[in-house]
Nucleic acid binder design. Structure first.
Lengths: 132, 132
DNA sequence: TTGTAAATGTTATATTATTACATAGTGTTA
DNA sequence: TAACACTATGTAATAATATAACATTTACAA
């Protein structure tokens, strides 16, 4: 059974904003957007973001310092994330490909390291931008 | 034939520093270290870093905002990078695994996107930290 | 030798993220 | 319910990361 995370007030405000957004949002753009709801300081945003990332409701796109809502119904894969990023229009999508995630989750090399998490970012041109 | 990149003065200073370092270096720690060599401003560091990344001599570890020298003899894989990161001691290594890079370079999904680049970061505990 | 691209130097500023400290809410359990 | 621990909140200050704008110089091919 999936653990139920009851979001707190700030967490909910910020998750809703990210969830509705068609594109990844940056922390300070989030801050700007929620100031009318009484969230005034960067730290309030970062704390909510940290928590939401931790419980897998959102992911951070590391190369962009931006956040998107998890696209997988059961947001349980914060430990195995893959994204496609269009370098022209900056559209970002979460990749949910069973083969890929299996391959990467099982990846091991000779380093002796035990991998418990990964993040993969693919870059290229999306369909639209390719045909321009 | 691999293109020869003659590094400029600043690029060389900064590459040498990163290349000698056993761990990824952050931009401002680089700045601090090269001030005695006449590099005074962040922008001078960032410009050299940008160029070095572009030509594949170094890579950026996105999740850490830090830079390491390319570990592959022919630094030609700036478009296909994979790293292992120990979450305890922060040791970072570049993974050069032919199967993995082939698998990822050939990856395609139904999105219609043409992937030209990827960056993968694995997290876990290294051998030393595991046994503590 | 001149045109052009790349690199440099410098100042200021924008953007991203954390430290430190005080207070309030939530849920458990004695 | 009282005491406790834990999570979340509020606020101010500041640290860390990165870029804009502008002027000048160097490298090198045409």
């Amino acid at each position: 059974m999936e653990k139920q995370h009851n979001l707190s007030k700030n967490q909910k405000i910020i998750f809703d904003l990210i969830d509705k957004s068609p594109e990844p949002l940056k922390a300070y753009s989030i801050l700007f957007n929620v100031q009318k709801k009484g969230i005034n300081a960067p730290l309030q945003v970062y704390r909510a973001l940290d928590k939401l990332v931790e419980i897998g409701k959102i992911h951070k796109i590391e190369s962009r310092n931006a956040f998107i809502a998890c696209q997988n119904s059961s947001c349980q894969i914060s430990k195995a994330t893959a994204f496609s990023i269009c370098e022209s229009c900056e559209k970002v999508s979460e990749i949910s490909n069973t083969k890929l995630s299996k391959y990467l989750s099982n990846f091991a090399d000779e380093s002796g390291m035990k991998y418990t998490k990964y993040n993969l970012e693919f870059f290229g041109l999306c369909k639209k931008c390719k045909s321009k």
